[in-house]
Simulated scan of single mutants.
Amino acid sequence: MSKPPFRAGQVAVLGRPNVGKSTLVNALVGAKVSIVSSRPQTTRHRLLGIASFPHGQLLLVDTPGIHREQGKASSSAMHRWMNRAARGALEGVDAALLVIEAGRWDDEDALAHDALREAGVPVVLAVNQVDRIKDKAALLPFLAQVSAGRDFAAVHPVSALKRKGLEALVDDLLRLMPEQPALYAEDEITDRSQRFLAGELVREQLMRQLGAELPYATTVEIEQFVEEPGKHGPLLRIGAVVWVERDGQKAIVIGKGGARLREIGSRAREQMERLFGCKVFLQTWVRVREGWSDDEAALRTLGYHD
């Protein structure tokens, strides 16, 4: 029996905020390349997750969720930039993966689906978080409902968190890819630098530690990223600045006696050491830059490039 041809290509991963896109990308890649929290706007940048398999390679373009503009806050420069990043991820891809939450389809899901339909690429539907559905009998009518009148190349109920249903999903995605050799080395997991990933890991802890206290007024800039020889292998010396928009927000991030900032730094450092495979010395500071999230020029200087 002949060996199936090797296939490789790009897949845009789209969906409304907080349906588990980044968790799914991490599960397929087999490593943490996208940060995860329960807060909207966790993913702000387009990021490539490289998932390599014996029979193919998927370049998964993780994107911010597509937001419907409603009111002043959602029309800020940051929101406009994230929508551009999400829609721009569709350029040049071979297929798209629409991720929705099991048991729920709303206007933002429809918005993401419409963006994919306009792009004219095959769309696979991943119905995520099926592990949360207690009544499994209700799942089939839901799948029929969301599929009606929509031309999906395949529909897959999955649990990214539990890593269930992913093998069949990968097979169907690879079938949509062109026959060609791998585009990245087998041990590569993302197109982003360690410096970028370090900033994202600090921002992940901000989202997790602050919860609803400081929704979206923070970003992270890596000022120092130096590799030095250490006693037991390389040491990364990293300096991270947390930018906020007001003095009151700075106090919230620092916390009483600096306790919250220390906790954010400690947890981010642990994640960095796990991802980079070496010791990390991390220093964090908090600075104020008024109105940065609604200033296109400020966004560019802080790494938000189209």
Score class of each variant (00 low, 15 high):
residue 255 G to P: 00
residue 199 G to V: 09
residue 247 D to V: 14
residue 193 S to P: 07
residue 124 V to Y: 07
residue 147 S to R: 12
residue 100 I to Y: 05
residue 58 L to N: 04
residue 186 E to P: 01
residue 132 R to Y: 11
residue 144 A to S: 13
residue 304 Y to G: 05
residue 219 T to E: 05
residue 230 G to I: 11
residue 150 R to S: 05
residue 63 T to C: 05
residue 117 R to H: 13
residue 86 A to C: 08
residue 278 C to M: 15
residue 160 A to Y: 10
residue 232 H to A: 11
residue 159 S to H: 11
residue 60 L to Y: 02
residue 271 Q to I: 11
residue 78 M to E: 08
residue 218 T to P: 00
residue 202 V to I: 15
residue 203 R to E: 10
residue 229 P to S: 07
residue 250 K to N: 06
residue 248 G to Q: 14
residue 166 L to A: 09
residue 141 P to D: 05
residue 274 R to K: 13
residue 241 V to F: 04
residue 258 G to I: 01
residue 258 G to P: 01
residue 153 A to L: 06
residue 291 G to R: 10
residue 232 H to S: 12
residue 205 Q to T: 04
residue 3 K to F: 15
residue 88 G to P: 01
residue 156 H to D: 12
residue 32 K to N: 05
residue 39 R to V: 03
residue 120 G to R: 02
residue 115 A to H: 12
residue 162 K to E: 15
residue 24 L to E: 13
residue 89 A to I: 06
residue 257 G to N: 09
residue 68 R to Q: 09
residue 249 Q to D: 14
residue 236 L to C: 07
residue 274 R to D: 14
residue 194 Q to V: 05
residue 17 P to F: 15
residue 37 S to I: 02
residue 299 L to P: 04
residue 265 G to E: 06
residue 62 D to I: 03
residue 146 V to Y: 07
residue 58 L to S: 01
residue 106 D to K: 04
residue 83 N to Q: 06
